[in-house]
């Protein structure tokens, strides 16, 4: 009989065994990162990345000077609807800065973390900045695109995301609708026909705004991109002013992306005071300057740098509360629900 101790030593086997035990030993060490000073979490939507990068820095400096307290602002960006959903599911936001009031309403409706009348708690309906929808065209504007009417012409390819999935795309849709409403004097059959024609000129309906920008700018598809004003400028800056031009139409929508304190979360973390200050400071002269510099239209233009303001062309702006739309509560089911107007006028492949 061969005693067990003479079994040939197997280094690899031992190595694996060793690794196994080391792994098991280290299992309980799933450390929670230590939190130093005050940390705020701002849950925002996609196009505000650059704006809040600049603003967070300015606010930290301001707060440090005012109170001596060091505050770090963490950012989370994504599609506005998805971000609202994440906050509902427990993403620990101190403040939300989203694309649509409807998304913040959804948080208020499904949790008790902020009051239903959140929009009244800050000036200007809790919107410290606004934006609008403009056109980004290729250098020299080869298709001669000047206004919404040019987008339904044969042979013009329009790039815009899907309004069923993208908050930004709903603004694009409403802007086109507002133009048609004015042009056809409110004749709904003609308006539907116009908007339907426009969407038949869309070769790729991306799911989000940045996806559309990439389709247009990187992949070189399409003649005109419908984009947030700030996105259009950003794309132009990042990808080269020698490649694109911005065309401002005669009429567009006034997009009002609101901000709100998620009091339930902030109270639990003990950050309510600094989170409130973070939102209040958005209305300060210094912040309004940063806002205009990042291509958002400030609610206090007098505080902004005149050079920055010059970039915002004057145009007729229609809000979602205009009688033709009647606010998000009406627009959402009437236009974007399954089987509603958008589904009726847009049938892929036709």
């Amino acid at each position: 009989m061969v005693p067990l101790t003479t079994f040939r030593s197997r280094p690899i086997g031992r190595l694996v065994a060793g690794a196994l035990f080391a792994a098991m030993a280290s299992m309980p060490l799933v450390a929670v990162p230590a939190i130093a000073d005050t940390t705020l979490l701002n849950v925002s939507y996609d196009p505000t990345r650059e704006l809040y990068k600049a603003y967070d820095e300015a606010f930290s400096t301001y707060w440090k000077e005012k109170t001596g307290e060091t505050v770090t602002v963490e950012q989370s960006h994504g599609g506005s609807g998805a971000q609202a959903r994440a906050v509902i599911d427990g993403l620990d936001a101190d403040v939300v800065t989203l694309a649509l009031a409807a998304d913040i309403d959804a948080i208020a409706a499904r949790t008790d973390k902020l009051p239903k009348d959140w929009a009244t708690l800050l000036p200007d309906n809790s919107t410290p900045y606004t934006s609008t929808i403009v056109f980004l065209v290729r250098k020299g504007n080869p298709k001669g695109i000047k206004d919404w009417g040019d987008l339904v012409k044969d042979g013009v390819q329009v790039i815009t995301p899907n309004p069923k999935t993208s908050g930004g795309a709903r603004w694009n849709y409403l802007a086109a609708w507002a133009y048609a409403n004015e042009t056809f004097g409110g004749d709904e059959a003609k308006i539907r026909d116009f908007v339907g024609k426009l969407y038949r000129n869309v070769p790729v309906l991306d799911s989000g705004a940045r996806g559309s920008t990439t389709t247009f700018a990187q992949r070189g598809i399409g003649d005109v991109l419908l984009a947030w004003e700030n996105e259009a400028y950003l794309a132009q800056n990042e990808l080269g002013p020698d490649q694109f031009e911005i065309v401002t139409p005669s009429i567009s929508v006034k997009a009002e992306p609101p901000v709100a304190l998620i009091k339930g979360n902030a109270d639990a973390k003990g950050t309510t005071a600094v989170a409130q200050a973070y939102l209040d400071y958005l209305y300060s002269d210094a912040a309004q300057k940063i806002i205009a510099h990042n291509y958002y239209r400030p609610v206090k233009p007098e505080a902004a740098d005149p050079e920055d303001l010059k970039r915002f062309a004057a145009l007729k702006l229609v809000t979602v509360d205009d009688p033709q739309f009647g606010g998000w509560a009406k627009v959402q089911p009437a236009h974007f629900a399954d089987g509603a107007i958008f589904d009726q006028i847009y049938k892929p492949g036709q």
């Binding site: 599911d89 620990d92 949790t111």
Partner: peptide
């Protein structure tokens, strides 16, 4: 996991009571 551990999920409220974060964190 969102359904299990999210704030609206089955175990979410219990975890929140004890200050344990699962979703939107490393765990």
């Amino acid at each position: 996991y969102v359904l299990m551990f999210g704030a609206q999920g089955y175990l979410g409220p219990l975890l929140a009571e004890h200050g344990i974060k699962v979703i939107f964190a490393v765990p």
